[in-house]
Design a protein around this nucleic acid. Sequence first.
DNA 1: GGATTTGTGTAGATCGGTCTACGTTTGTCT
DNA 2: AGACAAACGTAGACCGATCTACACAAATCC
Lengths: 342, 342
Amino acid sequence: MTEQLKRATISDVAEHAGVSRAAVSKVLRNAYGVSPAMRTKVEESMTLLNYRPLALARGMRGNSYTLGVFLVDLSNTFFSVLAEGIRDVAEELGYQVLIGQARQGLDAQQKLIEAMIDRRMDGLVLIAPFGPNDELEKLGRTIPVVVLGRHGPAKYFDTVASDDIAGSALIVDHLVSLGHERISMLANTQPDSEPGMPQTVRRHGYDLAMEKHGLSQWIDHVPGRWGTESGLEAGRSLAARPLAQRPSALHGGADVAALGAYTALFEAGIHIPDDMSIVGYDNIPATGLPPIGLSTVDQSGVQMGRQAAELLLSRIEGRTESEHVLVSPRLIVRKTSAPPRR
Amino acid sequence: MTEQLKRATISDVAEHAGVSRAAVSKVLRNAYGVSPAMRTKVEESMTLLNYRPLALARGMRGNSYTLGVFLVDLSNTFFSVLAEGIRDVAEELGYQVLIGQARQGLDAQQKLIEAMIDRRMDGLVLIAPFGPNDELEKLGRTIPVVVLGRHGPAKYFDTVASDDIAGSALIVDHLVSLGHERISMLANTQPDSEPGMPQTVRRHGYDLAMEKHGLSQWIDHVPGRWGTESGLEAGRSLAARPLAQRPSALHGGADVAALGAYTALFEAGIHIPDDMSIVGYDNIPATGLPPIGLSTVDQSGVQMGRQAAELLLSRIEGRTESEHVLVSPRLIVRKTSAPPRR
DNA sequence: GGATTTGTGTAGATCGGTCTACGTTTGTCT
DNA sequence: AGACAAACGTAGACCGATCTACACAAATCC
């Protein structure tokens, strides 16, 4: 049984190359003041000794070369697509992405963010965080932060979001063009909703679009949160309404909720789209399964993830004025939206 | 604009409490040699100064209190359920779980694992890793490792897996009891398959079950990998077969693949379950959507995740003999399995 | 040709914890 | 009472990098 070989440290490399530790460190960081001769000499020793710098130790003074991605819900596959986009960009620049998943609740979120700070991550991407904008501003003054899914403006962090006003308009326009008038929306009415959160903006976009079409009288927010569970409940509550008070079409708010509602309505014998049209939002993979074929709005998650990573890295490099990116959504018509039967 | 307050260090706490840094460290680690008086004194100072130990610095000598979860595919929602189980247990014991997602390929996997080691994680849970068992054994001698989804035996790491032999038998028994004889299986035929991998064991379980029922002549492995893409292709290849060579039922191997096949067959006009029955494996959320209702095998992911975390933590505490846990799967009959039409 | 600048390399402090070794006090046993 | 062990607390090295300050040599300037 061979003894576990001790891994090489920067001192080992320095000794082997016959230079100082500081010199090796410079090579490692591509810092100024290294002659070509020295660089090759050191690099040879590094490969020879199979040296890998200990990211942990680097983090003590310099960068940890680690980015944290904060998520609430790993089972929302849209979020995992975002995470992929982030990873792709980060890896190209030698950063490692580590994902943390928080339990529900503001407390758990705070804990996880602290845990990431305590591990000296160089920056954070927050995907659909809860909580007031103030808190995020405070956080943004402590560590570089990009928030994915919340709209700007913000002073101390960047944002990348889908243009949710436009997205809601796409949905309402589409449904109206099919002949619908009575269009409800699954509105995320979490108690701590803030301006800029997608639920707030999408709801507002829905209101605006309805007004634009002269359908203000039919504006109807079905309360709940955006998750499968809550979508189920919302669907049941719709099914329980007397026929005369039931909408002919539904803006699902988010795919996970829309699919939940779909499920509940289906189980109640309400046929989609004959009895009711449904359009979701996010274009998660499950929406494409053909027996379902949920019409939805696509936000090109990978692209958004890449954008977020680029912003975060440039912020780590020193940029201080905040930037706010809006991505144009795209309507995807499948099988759950059709003219009302009437 | 208030200046960002510097965070308190262990020295600040020590000074405030009028004790040595070593003493504070002892309190922090619940180490031996702390009087009750001293403990309360130190703890008061800690809360007063709002002190949080820097996990990064702790990792330099002691534990980093961080567990790494390695994943290949974040969009496989079964994996995210596992991750939740791991997190729940780890958090109770003061460990933080961070998830790393690798690109496809052995190289990318190796890189990610190294990155986790370089961040001094205290232990790793590998979910469905690629690669030969030897490599994992070598890894297990470097750092505590639990492999989720691969069967034992193994000397230097623990495993938690579904009893895939039993799971495959559940599927075949169920289909046979419905009257099927010609039962094919989507067999994951990745080039680097190793004994102990779920794809290997489930395929073997299928073979055994078919033999048990005297159906050896119908054993049929449809080649591919386990992913939506590959499932689609497999489904198309099945649809392209002349009717006489088409199975009447399909063991999907894994839900993601089964849903892919479902999609392709559906699009080819083959109706499920009238023309063909399909049973998946994993019970991912999408299988429960009512218009689909994929029959499948449940492995209680949260439970498996919890088990894995418990094993990892006990290994970190010093256990050295490996343990291998097998979780009993459970058949879930929904709507995609029915008697053959004939 | 002396002064200044530029390029290259090093010594040693530093980050914020943990750990070992040891000194001091207190308690227990004969 | 003296010997010995247990309990408690501290000093200071240590983990593996980065970073600041500075020394020295070569190149450039007037």
